[in-house]
Write a protein that binds this DNA or RNA. Structure first.
Lengths: 157, 157
DNA sequence: TATGAAACCTGTGCAGG
DNA sequence: CCTGCACAGGTTTCATA
């Protein structure tokens, strides 16, 4: 991906509703050229979709927690993600290196709902859980800084 | 927030670029009514913004990690978030209950970049770090299920 | 890939209930 | 808080280079 595509993705990550007209102004391309590039980025999966960022307090899900899970039976096949995906309180599921096998991020309305969710997680995936409650969120969902080719050198320096 | 607003937010969380016309169709309201509601939701901060969801592998940041931090000097004033916000590899920063004080989610290009970032984190905020590397991400950024008023009872059951 | 022009569709403001 | 209308501006396609 080269410079202009990077710029487009950066802009759309910051403002997912930016118009093609504005993207064209920012990139110096014509509207149609930008249009083609955005569609291509979507098709290639560089841009996976668009989302409104929501205030979780406002929508009645003020309690966030990280839940690390570990299989009860380490010999059993690991299909935790499929077993957990029906629980829509789970926002994300990452397989991780370390003592536990997955880290989940969950959003619930109350401590009681968290308790119920943890029971569902344990029952659904046959795992033990370790929960870290979020107290506040100084920042979240910051858009990525998209690497330029020069950045590639940074790590080597 | 009542039913129609909830529906609008749900739809925009799933597709941040959905047109007002389509939102109107989905809600049964006129375009202008939807328009007013969306603007109001934005003004009230229920909708905090819009973002393109990006494939981090594709943009050259294939390595994700969770970094838990703990102050070296527990007596010092805790201004870690401000001290860390300039590091744009940090996507999110949550203050948490538990042994550590914050959990950061970071995105970098390589293990070497992760090493460098950890040094910067430790130096910038005078903290120790504990890092959990993400191996794969079965799912992420799932849109929330917005609570209906009936959901309020769930926890009590 | 790029462009400009044409056709069509949306966003937005306003008058009115 | 709703609707419908008007028009400016955005989106999308196409012919062309």
């Amino acid at each position: 991906m080269e410079e202009i595509d990077r710029r487009i993705v950066t802009l759309l990550a910051k403002d997912g509703r930016m118009s093609f007209t504005d993207l064209a102004k920012e990139t110096g391309l014509s509207v149609s050229a930008v249009h083609q590039r955005v569609r291509r980025l979507e098709r290639r999966g560089v841009v996976r979709g668009y989302s409104a960022l929501v205030d979780y307090d406002e929508i009645g899900l003020p309690l966030t927690a990280f839940v690390s899970i570990k299989p009860i039976d380490p010999a059993a096949p690991d299909d935790a993600p499929e077993r957990l995906s029906h629980l829509d309180a789970i926002e994300s599921c990452h397989s991780v290196a370390g003592e536990e096998s997955y880290i989940l991020k969950v959003r619930v309305a109350s401590p009681l709902d968290l308790e119920e969710l943890l029971q569902q997680i344990r029952a659904s995936a046959n795992v033990s859980t370790r929960t870290t409650v979020v107290l506040s969120t100084p920042f979240d969902y910051r858009p990525p800084r998209i690497r330029t080719d020069e950045d590639a050198g940074d790590a080597a320096r």
